[in-house]
Design a protein around this nucleic acid. Structure first.
Lengths: 144, 144
DNA sequence: TATCAGATTAGATATAATCTAATTTTTCAT
DNA sequence: ATGAAAAATTAGATTATATCTAATCTGATA
């Protein structure tokens, strides 16, 4: 996605394309490692334009509300973010906690009986196990 | 699950059945609303035996490591916990953030091509939308 | 150009989780 | 039973993460 397309997608969502907001969005589009807010804050401040911590959090919140960014469901304490590009599932490593993308495929919906009166918007799969780097270690508590 | 069964399951996992640890486990088994650590801490301290915050966190960590409890993947800042009884999926409400159980059903695994060298342990579905209480509100930002 | 809503900022505050070091409890060999 | 060692608990300090506050800045537009 080029600069102009980012600008457009922000404005279509009713958000001004400020340089700080642009920087957050562009960083998320370039990095699909599900960075935390702190990582995004650090990355954005490595170059101009600078952005305060509050602004980084504000912009992340705005982008999530606008539907351009998603907050990834994972269990660490720091929220992780993801530009909503191609749909994908997630793989969370038991060993190192990293969150990786798994190619999207459709998932059977729950029956209307178990869904009840709830309104379903989307569903996503979370896989757990050991990532490529952590796979060889059988017990993470044993260093080697 | 009765008191004796809880005691046994703790001891089978190599954990002593202390009164504080028992209280955490018993509370999780009685409440499937995915309480946060703070809620568990408060609940356990409403009755005897008392438990310090550190102990509550320690015991939650031990129970998770032992595989008796799971930390739920959700995006709030406070971790939520879940006694591993019957398997189930999760429904997270866009409106109020509550996490509800959805009856378990099997899910197709990803192809070995997209899995690569990763070792898969389990998978779980996360549904999003509006829970029964929040379903009527079409736009959460508009009060009514 | 004046106005005003939206955006940004530094720093204070709030919230969640973990660490520390002292103490208590339990286990177990004797 | 007794004492030593291991495990668990504790209060309070500390760290990590996120949000709030109030002042200032920016840019669109009347």
């Amino acid at each position: 996605m080029d600069a102009e397309a980012i600008k457009l997608s922000l404005e279509e969502s009713g958000l001004r394309c400020t340089s700080q907001r642009y920087a957050v969005m562009a960083f998320l589009l370039e990095h699909n490692q599900h960075p935390t807010a702190a990582e995004i804050f650090a990355a954005v401040n490595r170059l101009d334009p600078r952005s305060s911590r509050a602004t980084t959090y504000n912009n992340l919140r705005d982008l999530v509300q606008a539907g351009l960014v998603r907050e990834v469901a994972a269990e660490g304490r720091a929220a992780r973010f993801d530009a909503k590009g191609m749909r994908h599932h997630h793989f969370i490593c038991d060993g190192c906690g990293s969150v990786e993308d798994i190619e999207w495929y459709d998932v059977p919906k729950p029956g209307s009986r178990s869904l009840g009166k709830r309104i379903l918007r989307e569903c996503e799969l979370i896989f757990r196990g050991r990532c490529t780097r952590c796979a060889p270690r059988h017990d993470p508590r044993k260093a080697f």
